[in-house]
Amino acid sequence: MRRSGPPGSAGDRHWRGSARLALSCALLFCALSLLVDWDAGSLTPLRALLWTALSSAVGTVLLPHRVSAGPGWLAVRTPWRRHMIRTDALAAVRQYDGPSSHLVLRDVYGHRLELDPRILTANPLLWHELDTGVHRSLARGTLRQGAEVLEQLGHDIDEETVQAVLRASGLS
């Protein structure tokens, strides 16, 4: 298995499958739109280019963010840029619930990062790197807001892990 980050970093182990699904949807959309336009007899080179560009936009929108973490840092790469924070120098953590629940993490250097908490739940190595950084931030006294949010998230992740172990062992 190839790694895309620096040595010692952890990444989202489900990203490749999600990216493959997003690109498959974009290709299917392109093929179907070209086929329908061709069947209607209105397909021209300009319209084919338009459908291809629109399919590329669909693929870009559906492409999931790539999350990676290492000792003291957490990064989220979008199709347009990379957001990175220092987990060992966190200043604030907020969780927003609703249709698209997400965590907002800020470090003392002013960097900001948004992250879906389900990614941390599905990737124990990412959670471990973040949790280690949070403990360092607490020890240094930089994390002044949101420690309870991460503590609750840690309990949720632990509970889900226990349930998964029980299901796998047939005890649940």
Results as ranks from 00 to 15, higher is better:
residue 9 S to C: 03
residue 69 A to T: 03
residue 126 L to W: 01
residue 49 L to Q: 13
residue 165 V to A: 08
residue 143 L to K: 03
residue 16 R to G: 14
residue 81 R to M: 11
residue 67 V to I: 15
residue 86 R to P: 05
residue 29 F to R: 06
residue 148 E to V: 10
residue 8 G to R: 05
residue 158 D to E: 12
residue 102 H to E: 10
residue 38 W to E: 15
residue 64 P to M: 00
residue 32 L to Q: 09
residue 58 V to E: 04
residue 105 L to C: 07
residue 42 S to R: 14
residue 66 R to D: 06
residue 75 A to H: 01
residue 63 L to P: 02
residue 87 T to H: 00
residue 123 N to L: 01
residue 26 A to P: 03
residue 111 H to S: 15
residue 144 R to F: 06
residue 24 S to H: 10
residue 97 D to R: 09
residue 99 P to T: 10
residue 61 V to S: 07
residue 32 L to D: 09
residue 77 R to V: 08
residue 11 G to I: 05
residue 122 A to D: 12
residue 168 A to S: 15
residue 83 H to S: 15
residue 40 A to V: 08
residue 35 L to Y: 14
residue 102 H to L: 09
residue 155 H to Y: 11
residue 86 R to S: 12
residue 1 M to Y: 10
residue 152 Q to A: 14
residue 51 W to F: 15
residue 163 Q to V: 07
residue 25 C to S: 13
residue 83 H to G: 08
residue 114 E to C: 10
residue 109 Y to T: 08
residue 162 V to I: 10
residue 163 Q to S: 07
residue 119 I to N: 00
residue 20 R to N: 09
residue 167 R to F: 09
residue 2 R to D: 14
residue 102 H to W: 02
residue 154 G to L: 05
residue 131 D to C: 07
residue 166 L to M: 14
residue 96 Y to N: 08
residue 91 A to K: 09
residue 130 L to H: 00
residue 134 V to T: 09
residue 54 L to I: 08
residue 53 A to R: 01
residue 52 T to V: 14
residue 153 L to K: 02
residue 53 A to H: 02
residue 58 V to M: 08
residue 27 L to D: 10
residue 75 A to S: 14
residue 30 C to Y: 08
residue 42 S to W: 10
residue 96 Y to C: 05
residue 162 V to W: 07
residue 155 H to E: 14
residue 76 V to G: 01
residue 25 C to N: 11
residue 37 D to K: 05
residue 69 A to V: 04
residue 172 S to K: 08
residue 135 H to L: 13
residue 50 L to P: 06
residue 120 L to Y: 01
residue 113 L to S: 02
residue 138 L to V: 09
residue 90 L to I: 04
residue 43 L to C: 09
residue 9 S to P: 04
residue 107 D to M: 01
residue 44 T to G: 11
residue 44 T to E: 09
residue 5 G to F: 04
residue 37 D to Q: 13
residue 139 A to H: 12
residue 134 V to W: 00
residue 20 R to L: 13
residue 153 L to V: 11
residue 104 V to Y: 03
residue 90 L to A: 02
residue 40 A to P: 06
residue 86 R to G: 06
residue 24 S to F: 12
residue 40 A to N: 14
residue 52 T to Y: 03
residue 28 L to I: 12
residue 66 R to T: 04
residue 160 E to I: 05
residue 46 L to S: 13
residue 20 R to V: 13
residue 58 V to D: 05
residue 19 A to H: 05
residue 78 T to H: 02
residue 1 M to C: 10
residue 16 R to H: 11
residue 102 H to P: 07
